[in-house]
Design a binder for these strands. Structure first.
Lengths: 255, 255
DNA sequence: CTCTTAATATCGGAC
DNA sequence: GTCCGATGTTAAGAG
């Protein structure tokens, strides 16, 4: 690892540090007054102001304002980043990122560069994640009777239908088919829609088929929509974030 | 504007620069070897490695690896960021971000800080965006006959129904009601679902009601779903990104 | 390549 | 505060 930092660099230095850095696999951060232009799926213009610009060797370009989680403008990984120092030292260096599919570009005019930093970062470990929907699927599959209802049996996981993929195809104690859609967070109207799409398909041939939306919680509107369409909401309290967490965070609290 | 940078700072300096900086409205960037722990809506652990950590005064915390558009871990704006220098200079300073609703936290153990930078950024201008769905709505509303079909008339925009908001409620040349759902990008199965949700509602009382999904393009599966449900796809080629852009980017190209 | 779905989605607007 | 829908969503996984 090394970090090399250049304060108030001229255009040629900016171009060199960014160009060499990205080519050699470093992350380059720039603190600068800049102007940004974007065109592609949408389009936009951001007038002059102070921003943090991050360039990654995979082609990622991020322009961050002093507030907000999301960059105001960006280019996802896979883009080509070029830097043009301009014709004279008076010119603002230009960062230009481009990609195809979709065809779009981003231009960052670096009008006043306060600082450029080259970070030769080594980061090889894998991120370990807990609490995905896949985990919830495993939980249901391992013990469907306690997760969903007595007597239920999973017939198929991720079944492909004419209209998309459903999470579980099951059978209840009476042998009636059950379509199960699982959400790890509060289920929304769109999730109800998704389940209904599969239901409409199966009900054509068998009006008895049941539909279950499984989630830690949902809104009243969704519950009514389910009821009106003879479908069911199954609450999986074990996966409710608010409930689950309160206890854990108390133990590990910090002040 | 000012940028102040500290190379290889000790724990006390890290704590001071981050604490003072955030309190006084600056953006603080840290290049460091660190370890990250997250728990909340999901949970995760990221072992030691070199990352760029960005702290914003609104409570945003971002941990960026050397590749990828999205931060590997983060806390959205509104969180409280604290920094603990540890008990001795040997200890790793700890960045701790927390928020409620949902209740979650992020811990960044800064095991080896290569550089800390405080950026007192001034950024007041507004971002100007083009090509939003709202623009597409205006386009349709201003001339529904050329956008959708001859004789059609918009009755209501953003009508609230029992199951949500629909984009346009219209009437065709014969006076038949038309439910219109607009997407500025390629329409997906979920968008079909959304339209169908409204359709089901209106068809109960009037089986003649028509449904239109308006978008620059869509997949065959969506087209079939629409056909099977007696709904229509209206292609708005004017908003097709791939088509529109080819010409523009040629003019403004850069190499 | 496209299509389909998940995501710690985030964000903003309406109520 | 909750709910609802747009987003330049991005990213992963299957075909």
């Amino acid at each position: 690892m090394t970090v090399e930092r250049f304060a108030a660099p001229d255009a040629a230095t900016v171009a060199r540090v960014v160009g060499d850095g990205l080519r050699e696999g470093a992350v380059v951060s720039i603190e600068a007054e800049c102007e940004v232009e974007y065109d592609g799926r949408s389009g936009g213009y951001l007038g002059p102001g102070d921003r943090l610009v991050v360039c990654k060797p995979d082609g990622t370009l991020l322009v961050h304002r002093p507030s907000g989680h999301k960059p105001v403008n960006w280019m996802p990984g896979g883009a080509t980043i070029k830097v043009d120092p301009g014709e004279s030292d008076e010119d603002a260096p230009l960062l230009y990122a481009r990609r195809s599919n979709p065809n779009e570009f981003l231009r960052v005019y670096l009008q006043d560069v306060y600082s450029v930093s080259r970070f030769d970062a080594t980061d090889a470990v894998e991120y370990q994640e807990r609490g995905t929907e896949a985990e919830m699927h495993e939980y249901i599959e391992s013990d469907p009777e306690s997760a969903l209802e007595a007597g239920i049996r999973i017939v198929e996981h991720e079944r492909e239908t004419q209209y998309g993929y459903l999470d579980f195809f099951a059978q209840d104690a009476d042998g009636t088919p059950v379509v199960v859609e699982v959400k790890r967070r509060q289920a929304t109207l769109n999730h109800f829609d998704q389940l209904k799409r599969y239901m409409d398909l199966y009900r054509e041939s068998n009006p008895e088929v049941r539909g279950m939306l499984v989630a830690p919680s949902t809104s009243d509107r969704v519950k009514r929509a389910l009821r009106d369409n003879d479908m069911e909401f199954v609450r999986l309290a074990e996966f409710d974030v608010e409930t689950r967490e309160a206890s854990e965070t108390t133990l590990t609290d910090f002040s």
